[in-house]
Simulated scan of single mutants.
Amino acid sequence: MNFSISVFLGTLCSILAVILASFLVEKKFPKRSRPGRKTWWLIAHIFFVVLYFSGLLGTLLLSLSTAFVDRSGLIYAAHLFIQFFDWFLIIPGAFGSLITGFGLAVGTWGITRHYWVIAKWVGNSLAILFGAMCMRVWIHDSFPILFADGMNPLQNPVYLENRRLLVMGTLVSLFLLTFLVVISYLKPWGKRKKYRRSRKSSAGRETAPSV
Rank of each mutant, 00 (worst) to 15 (best):
A78C: 11
V25F: 03
Q83R: 08
H45R: 08
V49Q: 09
T108W: 12
G36I: 10
R71V: 12
S63L: 05
I99N: 06
V106H: 00
A94M: 14
T39K: 13
A44N: 14
A67S: 10
F53D: 05
G96E: 04
G103R: 11
G103V: 08
G107P: 10
G103E: 08
F68R: 05
K28Y: 02
A105T: 07
I46E: 04
A94R: 00
P35W: 08
I99A: 06
L42V: 06
G103W: 02
S54V: 09
T108V: 11
F88V: 05
R71D: 14
R71Y: 09
H79Q: 08
P30K: 08
L61N: 12
A94S: 14
I99V: 15
F88H: 05
G36M: 10
H79V: 01
G103F: 09
G96W: 01
L104Q: 14
K28W: 09
A77H: 00
L80S: 15
Q83S: 15
F84W: 14
S65Y: 06
S54A: 13
G103L: 15
R113F: 00
T100Q: 11
E26D: 12
G101N: 08
G93F: 04
I46V: 12
I46D: 04
V50D: 04
R113H: 11
L56D: 09
V50C: 04
L56C: 12
D86I: 02
Y52T: 14
D86W: 10
W41V: 12
F53K: 05
V106C: 10
G36Y: 06
W40N: 15
F68D: 03
L80N: 08
K28P: 00
L57I: 14
R113T: 07
R113Q: 13
F47Q: 04
L74R: 04
S63R: 05
S72H: 13
H45W: 05
R32D: 07
R34H: 14
R113W: 04
L42E: 12
G101P: 02
K38Q: 12
I43W: 02
G73E: 13
L56M: 15
W87E: 11
K31N: 04
G36W: 04
D86C: 09
G58K: 03
L104P: 01
I82W: 02
D86H: 08
I75G: 08
R34E: 10
I46S: 06
F84Q: 11
R37F: 11
P92H: 09
Y76P: 02
P92R: 11
I75Q: 02
V106P: 01
P92L: 03
I46W: 03
G103S: 10
L56N: 07
L60P: 09
S97I: 00
S33N: 09
A105D: 02
A44L: 10
D70L: 03
E26Y: 02
R37W: 11
T39L: 15
I46M: 06
R37E: 15
F102N: 02
V25E: 10
L57P: 05
V50P: 00
A105F: 03
G93S: 04
W41E: 15
T100Y: 15
R71L: 06
L104K: 10
L80H: 14
R37M: 07
F81D: 08
Y52E: 09
I91A: 08
V49S: 07
I75A: 07
Y76W: 06
G73V: 06
F29P: 01
